[in-house]
Design a protein around this nucleic acid. Structure first.
Lengths: 201, 201
DNA sequence: CCTAAGTTGAACAGTAGTGTTCGAGTTATT
DNA sequence: AATAACTCGAACACTACTGTTCAACTTAGG
């Protein structure tokens, strides 16, 4: 053994590297549109032959896995650049504005991942992202800004759900893309308000 | 021509009728669990041979179509028995309590329908149900009970989204089935409350 | 009891995907 | 310029589905 061949292959020709990048790009786009997109379609979209693709990603699972890994890493990075300190309500608005479209795209990928990969892997990979949101909402609850008559985990799920709802509405042309972030944040904040703060009619 | 042979076939043996019923039942259940369930699986679940199933439903589309038609009719009937008059907030609670699980199940079937049937047919069939909800929410808006700073169509989508969210949470074991209706209604009502009714902290 | 209606598995053709192999051609790198 | 790395299409084996045909069998109903 001259060199330890670990995960990031050392020697790879430039064109191979370019092709791998093209495949991952094409896969991200294709799978976002159709989670059942075939390897053949993805290869064609990447502008390379099917065999070449298999040369870099031995199985469909390998490809999907890597696409998910990248999308997740990108999302994680985007999330870390958002300031989640201060008033949880303001922070939530910033969070939504900065990440709703990312989450929406990922949602389409998720179904692709779910039927190509073991469910455990998928869930485990997402836990990192969920944690940020959960932390923010939990803080809002303990500060009395968000309601406590419903479990925080439910509030997290509802937020997630509303984001995907907005994505669908935008895709269907019923909501303008510029309005989405505001709709989401306004709706979620309203849903999270403690019942005591609502004046009875 | 002795008799006009219209849609509901007249002469059919009792066992055939029974089998058809068994197939539709099995299909509803199987497709709710997995929208990609094969004809073979459904036939086995119904306790009959695959060929027999094809005898009654020439194509997968025919079967899915009929399953959807029935589920929709059942949902419509259930909806009509709910009193949607009076305070829109109370009406919404009744609506959710009486129909959330129905909607949740249908959601799983919907994806099966969407990839076996032309999209137009599917959407058209659902319009009837949406109308009831839309009417209720629109009324709430015009009576000043629900917010008007967001379009009613958005509120309808959000409600729908929250119902499916609850269904997922129940399926995942994070929310108890008995709590679901209350979670949904409480969250939705809070989200629909006009901003003016919320006291600033 | 008779028969038409219904059921059945086996076998078939057709489609569409995954993943592999091969041999010939191309290109990056030294 | 030499060579190892890479690409490519064609063809292959395999799996899993849909839908069809057939001939034997069972059963409902008059």
């Amino acid at each position: 053994m001259t060199t330890h061949e670990t995960s990031p292959r050392l020697k790879r020709r430039a064109d191979a590297e370019r092709n791998i990048e093209a495949v991952l790009d094409a896969a991200r786009i294709s799978l976002s549109r159709d989670p059942d997109a075939s390897i053949g379609e993805i290869a064609k979209a990447a502008g390379i032959g099917r065999v070449t693709l298999y040369g870099h990603f031995p199985t469909r699972a390998d490809l999907v896995s890597e696409v998910m890994r990248r999308a997740l890493a990108q999302a994680e990075q985007a999330l870390e650049q958002i300031d989640l300190a201060g008033d949880p309500r303001e922070a939530l608005r910033r969070l939504v504005a900065g990440s709703w479209s990312l989450t929406a795209d990922a949602g389409a990928l998720l179904t692709a991942a779910e039927q190509a990969l073991p469910a455990e892997d998928v869930h485990a990979a997402h836990d990192g992202l969920f944690a940020h949101v959960t932390t923010l909402i939990t803080r809002g609850c303990s500060e009395g800004v968000f309601r406590t008559d419903l479990p925080p985990s439910w509030l997290v799920s509802v937020l997630h759900s509303i984001v995907h709802c907005a994505a669908s509405e935008v895709a269907a042309g019923r909501v303008r893309k510029e309005d989405a972030a505001n709709y989401i944040a306004t709706t979620a904040l309203s849903a999270f308000t403690p019942p005591a703060a609502i004046s009875r009619a």
